[in-house]
């Protein structure tokens, strides 16, 4: 039996070594004094916050940086009003258009399709259904309605105001309206020169 004992020791040793690696736990740290932040970190859990949660919604009635007060309500009347009177404050420059295209590829194209015809990849895979084309006659979207829907969401589409800034939403509106024109076989609008800085920052 004695000649096996060394083998058993080796096995035990390797077992102990490998059992230290538990991939669901982080590794040891050596003197982690400066590893751990003293300040409150993003997404942290601290007792001074409501529900112990650092990630909170902005205080009601406060306006985030870069945004303007948006007075159109999240209702059918608000939608109609925004559709009728809200206009894009950004000029139709090439830069704004390109930025809008970039945002469109990230946030919209997966459902609305590259051309805005409502045939995105998720629709083709029948994961999400009922995505209308931008030239849908019943809806007859305008700059105001596009912004309003991105801001508040409509039906099963959610709000995108948490993922993009105010400026990006308006740049995206330019791009969406261009896609609508192209779907309706219209010419794309001429780009204008940027007069000073855009109104909205």
């Amino acid at each position: 039996m004695k000649r096996y004992s060394s083998l058993i020791y080796v096995l035990m040793f390797s077992f102990i070594l490998t059992s230290c690696f538990d991939k669901s736990k982080p590794n040891f740290q050596y003197f982690p004094d400066m590893y751990e932040p003293i300040s409150y970190e993003t997404y942290g859990e601290y007792s001074i916050f409501q529900d112990g949660q650092q990630a909170l919604e902005p205080v009601a009635e406060s306006i985030s940086r870069g945004w303007l007060p948006y007075d159109y309500e999240d209702s059918a009347e608000g939608y109609d009003l925004a559709k009728a009177e809200l206009k894009n404050p950004l000029p139709y420059t090439e830069e704004n258009y390109n930025k809008g295209e970039e945002m469109y590829a990230i946030y919209c194209a997966t459902c609305h399709g590259d051309k805005g015809n409502g045939k995105g990849y998720l629709v083709e895979r029948e994961k999400i259904l009922g995505v209308p084309s931008y030239d849908d006659v019943g809806r007859a979207i305008t700059e105001g309605s596009v912004y309003h829907v991105m801001y508040h969401g409509i039906n099963t589409m959610g709000s995108y105001a948490s993922q993009m800034s105010n400026e990006e939403l308006w740049q995206l509106t330019h791009y969406v309206m261009t896609l609508k024109d192209l779907l309706e076989d219209k010419e794309q609008k001429e780009f204008v020169e940027d007069v000073e800085n855009p109104v909205v920052r």
Binding site: L129, P132, D136, N155
Partner: peptide, 16 residues
């Protein structure tokens, strides 16, 4: 149905 109605309606389940 899939292109126009399915945003708010499902055949066998209540949606919007």
């Amino acid at each position: 149905f899939n292109s126009l109605c399915a945003a708010c309606h499902k055949p066998y389940k209540k949606a919007v």
